[in-house]
């Protein structure tokens, strides 16, 4: 059904500024080392004053389409929960900025942290059916956390884009999704920051959906963890994905390459997608990749891929681990509050 359909280009971006969790903890009178160790997150990426989920989406999209004719993109989906406009698509701005418009369909998608992988599924189905030549799926967020809230310690900024087409460099083997109405995290219309249900976000939310989607895909494809070389999970912190992986039988070594949250925080819609981009930076032809996203509300998309011959030539110019390590600037809480407009007058 998905024969010869998959990823033909990809790109990830991370803003330049970082704030250490210890610095956030200092402001709120918490033990920084303890918070950092508890979440397995050292620092998070901070989008600048003139960046938002739209500018990050454009930057990631430009990298993903750099070797392809953007005019062949027939569908573009921008996934985010931190849209600059409540009404007015980011997708049409991206389409114009990369030269994909006007002959395409486009929309913004929202499903907390998994809107990006839903876009990938939609693009793959549209390419497989012959409805479009190329589809572009983006996950992009400048994640919001209320000052002093637990989420503020992990909510990061970043984006990843995947160009979907035929003759892929990373072929889709199959996909399986699991969705239920679970109110673990939400943000009401006009509310500035999301609310969450504390400890409720673990077992009945993240783990139930990630494990169910993963097991569903194992069953559908007749595979187990042993059949895959890499596993990427949604990563609201640095601990959940390791635990989910262990429960499914993945060794830590298979998860490390796609575990990015410890260095940039939870980038929401981009989190599992930046993890996948990091795996594509190193995967060899013939190796298999298992990806499970998670979006509060709640649902998970599991996707299984196999890397193909063209992968080496199609790697992004700057690997995710280079983006994380190179050219970063640490800011204190005051500068962070200015750039993220947490001051009332901004």
């Amino acid at each position: 059904m998905f024969k010869n359909v998959g990823i033909i280009g990809y790109g990830a971006v991370v803003p330049r500024m970082r704030i250490k969790l210890e610095e956030i903890a200092r402001v709120w009178g918490k033990d920084g080392a303890k918070v950092s160790a508890g979440l397995n997150v050292r620092e998070k990426a901070v989008a600048a004053f003139d960046e938002d989920s739209c500018t990050l989406a454009v930057e990631a999209a430009r990298i993903a389409v750099r070797n392809h004719d953007a005019a062949r993109i027939g569908a573009l989906f921008a996934g985010s929960e931190s849209k600059p406009y409540a009404v007015k698509p980011t997708a049409s701005i991206v389409a114009d900025a990369i030269g994909a418009s006007p002959d395409l369909t486009a929309a913004d998608l929202e499903f907390a942290c998994k809107a990006g992988t839903v876009g990938m599924q939609a693009c793959m189905a549209m390419v497989a059916s012959g409805m479009v030549d190329y589809g572009l799926a983006i996950g992009s967020d400048t994640a919001q956390g209320r000052p002093a809230d637990a989420l503020e310690f992990s909510s990061g900024s970043g984006a990843a884009a995947f160009l979907i087409g035929k003759n892929p460099i990373v072929e889709l083997i199959d996909t399986f999704s699991f969705t239920t109405d679970t109110p673990d995290f939400w943000r009401r219309q006009h509310a500035e920051f999301p609310q969450h249900a504390g400890r409720f976000t673990g077992e009945p939310a993240y783990f139930k959906h990630v494990l169910s989607a993963a097991k569903g895909l194992f069953e559908k494809t007749g595979t187990t963890a042993k059949d895959y070389d890499f596993a990427v999970f949604h990563q609201p912190n640095g601990k959940f994905p390791l635990r989910a992986g262990e429960m499914l039988g993945f060794e830590k070594e298979k998860i490390k390459q796609g575990l990015i949250t410890p260095f940039i925080g939870n980038t929401y819609s981009a989190a599992s997608m930046i993890g996948l981009a990091s795996v594509l930076d190193v995967v060899k032809p013939g190796q298999k990749i298992f990806v499970v996203s998670y979006g509060s509300g709640a649902g998970s998309d599991a996707l299984a891929f196999e890397a193909k011959k063209g992968i080496e030539a199609a790697r992004q110019p700057e690997a995710v681990f280079d983006l994380i390590g190179r050219d970063k600037v640490y800011v204190d809480y005051a500068v962070y509050a200015k750039h993220r407009r947490k001051l009332k007058t901004l």
Partner: peptide, 19 residues
């Protein structure tokens, strides 16, 4: 690079472009 250039006000349109 692609950045936000200016916005009219918090309810206005956002102008994006090159830097």
């Amino acid at each position: 690079v692609f950045r936000k250039i200016f916005e009219d006000d918090c309810e206005g349109v956002i102008a994006y472009g090159y830097k």
